[in-house]
C-alpha cells in the first residue's frame, strides 16, 4: 500500500528511476529471504538422495549428480519409519478429532450463555494453552504408569482387533493426553469464531423451540464448517509434530508403538556418527504429511496461527 501511492509527485523521470530501484531492492530482499527460509530444507532434501561419497564430497546445496544419486537412503528410511507412520496417524487422527470436537463444544457452551463465572472459566482455558508441559510430565507418567494403567487394561481389546497389534494399546493414553491438552487451544480458536456470529442465530432458534443440542447440531456445526477446517489442520499438525508427550508416555524409540517424531532422532545413527543421507531421508519422509497439508491448506494454517495470537 505504501508504494502504490508514492507515484504522485511531478518529477516523473527521476521518480521512475528511484522507484524501480526501490522496487528492485525490495524484490532482491524478498528473494534473499526465500533463500534463507528454503536453503536449510533444500540441503536436507538434496542430501537425502546422495550416496555417502557424494554427501562428503559435494556442496550440500547442489543436487546429486549421476553416480552420486541414490534412492537407497529413502528406501532404508521408509523401512525404518513405516510402522511409526502408522502409529503416528493412528494416534494423531483420533486425538485431533477428539480435541477439535471438544473444543467446539466448549466454545459453544461458553459463548451462547451469559453467566457470571464465565470469564474465570475462560482464563482457566487460556492458561491451559500456555502451560509448559514440563509442569505436568511427572504426574502424567505416574498417572498412566502407576495409578491408571489404561494401556494394559485395553490391551486385550487390541489383540482381538484386526490390523492393530497389542502394542498399539500403548498409544491410547497418548491419544487421551493429546485430547485433554489440546482442548484449550481448540476452545479459544472456536470461541473467537463463534463470537463473530450474530447472537440472533441462537436466539431465533431458541424461540423456535430448538433445544441446545439441536441448535448445536443443526445451526452452529454447519455454520462453523470453515472453522473446523482451520482448527483441524492446525491441531493435526501440532499433534503429529509433538514430541514431549510421546517421549514421556512411550518407553523408547526402539519400541514398536513409537511415533515418527520419537524415532527420527535415532534413525541413521551408529557408533561412527550420523549417516546424514539416511537421516535427511527420514526427516523428509517424517515431514511429508504435514508438508502436504501445509501446502494444500496454507491459508487455514496461517489463520489458525493468527487467531492463536
Amino acid at each position: 500500500m505504501a508504494s502504490s501511492s508514492s507515484d504522485q509527485t511531478f518529477d516523473v523521470a527521476s521518480l521512475v528511476e528511484d522507484y524501480s530501484l526501490y522496487r528492485i531492492s525490495q524484490y532482491v530482499l524478498v528473494v534473499l529471504f526465500i533463500g534463507f527460509f528454503l536453503a536449510p530444507l533444500e540441503t536436507g532434501l538434496m542430501t537425502a538422495f546422495k550416496t555417502n561419497r557424494a554427501v562428503a564430497e559435494t556442496i550440500p546445496l547442489m543436487p546429486p549428480l549421476a553416480e552420486g544419486f541414490t534412492l537407497d537412503n529413502m528406501t532404508f528410511a521408509l523401512d525404518a519409519l513405516s510402522g511409526a507412520f502408522f502409529n503416528s496417524l493412528f494416534m494423531a487422527i483420533p486425538a485431533t478429532i477428539g480435541s477439535v470436537l471438544f473444543g467446539s463444544m466448549a466454545a459453544y457452551g461458553l459463548t451462547m450463555v451469559d453467566w457470571r463465572g464465565q470469564l474465570g472459566v475462560l482464563v482457566l482455558f487460556l492458561v491451559g494453552i500456555f502451560l509448559p508441559y514440563q509442569a505436568v510430565l511427572v504426574p502424567l507418567a505416574r498417572f498412566w504408569n502407576n495409578i491408571f494403567p489404561l494401556a494394559s487394561m485395553v490391551e486385550p481389546i487390541f489383540v482381538a482387533l484386526p490390523i492393530l497389534q497389542s502394542y498399539h494399546a500403548n498409544l491410547v493414553p497418548l491419544i487421551i493426553t493429546h485430547i485433554a491438552y489440546g482442548i484449550p487451544i481448540c476452545t479459544i480458536l472456536f470461541r473467537s469464531y463463534y463470537q463473530g456470529l450474530p447472537t440472533s442465530y441462537v436466539e431465533a432458534a431458541k424461540i423456535d423451540g430448538a433445544s441446545i443440542t439441536k441448535i448445536y447440531r443443526r445451526i452452529i456445526l454447519p455454520i462453523s464448517k470453515p472453522m473446523f477446517g482451520v482448527v483441524f489442520i492446525y491441531q493435526f499438525t501440532q499433534i503429529y509434530n509433538e514430541f514431549l508427550f510421546a517421549f514421556t508416555l512411550i518407553t523408547g524409540s526402539d519400541t514398536p508403538e513409537a511415533v515418527v517424531t520419537l524415532i527420527l532422532p535415532a534413525v541413521g545413527a551408529s557408533t561412527s556418527g550420523v549417516d546424514f543421507g539416511i537421516r535427511m531421508s527420514a526427516a523428509f519422509l517424517a515431514a511429508l504429511p504435514t508438508l502436504i497439508i501445509y501446502v494444500a491448506f496454507a491459508e487455514q494454517f496461517a489463520k489458525g496461527l493468527k487467531t492463536d495470537a
Binding site: N241, L264, A286, L291, A298
Partner: peptide
C-alpha cells in the same frame, strides 16, 4: 507461505536439518 513453511515442521525434523 514459503516464509511460514518452517513453522509447519516438527522441531524434531528441523533439528535434524540444522544438525546437518
Amino acid at each position: 507461505t514459503i516464509y511460514l513453511l518452517p513453522m509447519a515442521l516438527s522441531f524434531v525434523i528441523t533439528a535434524q536439518v540444522w544438525l546437518w
